[in-house]
C-alpha cells in the first residue's frame, strides 16, 4: 500500500502544476468590505487605496458553495489516492503565505497548484497518516502576486482499518474536518526556534519570596513598588525588612508608571542575549520617587536625554517573565 501511495505521489508530483483556476470575481470592494467587517479589521488603508488585505488572497479563488470536482488538481488527486487507502480524514497543519504585492480593486486573479511532497506513514496524535504539501501561486496575468505552501495531514481515523471504505470524502484544501493538535510540527519548527531564541536566551531574574510581588505585577501589567506595611516607606529594589522602621510586613502600591530618565546607557557591545543592539537602558526616577532600570523601547538613542519623561510599558518574554520597560513621552 505504501508503495502505491508513493508511486501515485511521484506521478502527481512529476505532472507539475495543475491548470490555472480563475477566481469567480475580480478583486472587488464589496467582498473586501465583507471580509473587513467579519474579521474586525479597521485598517482604513484598503478602502483608501483600493487594495485587498493580503490575507484575502486565497479568498478570490475559493471554490464556493458548490465546488466542482477537479481531478487534475494535485491536492484533490492525492487526496483521492489516500482516501482509497483508508486515510480518509484530513486536518490542515501549516499555511505559509507570501505576498509579493497587494492586489488592487478590479484585478483578475488565478491560481495554480502543484504537489511538493507526500511524507508518511507517520504516527501522529490523531492516528497514522501522511503529510501532503502543496505549493500554490496566484497570478494577475503573467505576474505572480502571491504564493502559499499548504500542508495537510491525511490520516486514518482511530478505529477504522486500512481496507475500510472511506467514511467521508476528503474535503478540498483549506478546510479541516477533524481538528486537533497534530504531533508533527512540520514547518512550525521554524517558528518555534525563532520564538525560543528570544525566550530561552532571555536573562531571567532570580525570583524570591521578597521579590515575587514585583514580577507578578509586571505579568499583570502593573508596576509595583514595595511599600512598608509599618511606616509606608517606598523602596525599590525591594527587600524583606524595612530600613526605616524595621517592620517585616511588606505591602506594595501600583505605580502610576511615569517618571524621568535619571541616567541612561546606549549599549552597543558586547552582545546581550535575546536583544538586537544597540539598546538604550535607562535608570528612571519614578513619579513616586524610587528609581528603576529598564530598556527604553522604540527610541532613537540620539533622542534620549536625562530628564526626559517616560511611561512604563511591559515586555512579555514568555509565560514566566514580563519585563518592565520605558517609552518616551512626547
Amino acid at each position: 500500500m505504501e508503495g502505491t501511495i508513493r508511486a501515485a505521489a511521484e506521478r502527481i508530483r512529476a505532472a507539475g502544476a495543475g491548470p490555472a483556476r480563475p477566481g469567480r470575481d475580480p478583486v472587488n470592494l464589496p467582498m473586501i468590505r465583507n471580509w473587513l467587517e467579519a474579521i474586525g479589521d479597521r485598517n482604513p488603508r484598503y478602502e483608501q487605496d483600493g487594495v485587498a488585505p493580503p490575507a484575502m488572497t486565497q479568498v478570490w479563488t475559493m471554490r464556493g458553495l458548490h465546488p466542482v470536482v477537479e481531478p487534475a488538481d494535485p491536492l484533490s488527486a492525492m487526496s483521492a489516492v489516500l482516501d482509497q487507502a483508508g486515510f480518509t480524514s484530513v486536518v490542515a497543519t501549516n499555511c505559509e503565505q507570501t505576498y509579493h504585492r497587494y492586489l488592487r480593486d478590479g484585478e483578475r486573479v488565478e491560481v495554480r497548484s502543484r504537489l511538493v511532497d507526500v511524507r508518511g506513514p507517520k504516527r501522529t496524535a490523531l492516528g497514522e497518516g501522511w503529510f501532503v504539501t502543496t505549493d500554490s501561486t496566484w497570478y494577475v496575468g503573467a505576474e505572480a502576486v502571491a504564493s502559499m505552501t499548504f500542508r495537510v495531514l491525511k490520516f486514518r481515523p482511530p478505529g477504522s482499518t486500512a481496507t475500510a471504505p472511506a467514511s467521508e470524502r476528503a474535503p478540498a484544501a483549506a478546510s479541516e474536518r477533524v481538528p486537533a493538535v497534530v504531533s508533527e510540527r512540520a514547518s512550525g519548527v521554524a517558528f518555534e526556534r525563532a520564538a525560543a531564541a528570544v525566550a530561552s536566551d532571555a536573562l531571567r531574574p532570580v525570583v524570591t519570596r521578597d521579590t515575587a510581588f514585583f514580577w507578578a505585577g509586571t505579568a499583570a501589567g502593573e508596576l509595583r513598588i514595595q511599600r512598608c506595611g509599618g511606616c509606608g516607606e517606598l523602596r525599590h529594589p525591594p527587600g524583606p525588612v524595612c530600613r526605616q522602621c524595621g517592620a517585616d510586613r511588606q505591602d506594595h502600591l501600583v505605580a502610576r508608571g511615569t517618571g524621568e530618565i535619571f541616567s541612561f546607557v546606549v549599549h552597543r557591545h558586547p552582545p546581550v542575549p535575546g536583544r538586537r543592539l544597540p539598546i538604550v537602558v535607562a535608570l528612571v526616577e519614578l513619579t513616586e520617587g524610587v528609581r528603576m532600570v529598564g530598556e527604553v523601547l522604540g527610541a532613537d538613542p540620539r533622542q534620549v536625554r536625562i530628564g526626559a519623561t517616560v511611561q512604563v510599558d511591559f515586555v512579555r518574554v514568555d509565560t514566566e517573565l514580563t519585563l518592565p520597560a520605558w517609552r518616551l513621552l512626547p
Binding site: 490575507a55 505559509e96 493538535v181
Partner: peptide, 23 residues
C-alpha cells in the same frame, strides 16, 4: 494578519504570514 497590522499601523506592508495550526 489583522492582529499585526492593528499594531503596526496603516502604513505597514505585510510580506508574509506563516501559521501552524493546533487546537
Amino acid at each position: 494578519q489583522r492582529y499585526v497590522t492593528d499594531w503596526a499601523g496603516a502604513t505597514a506592508m505585510v510580506h508574509s504570514v506563516a501559521i501552524r495550526l493546533g487546537a
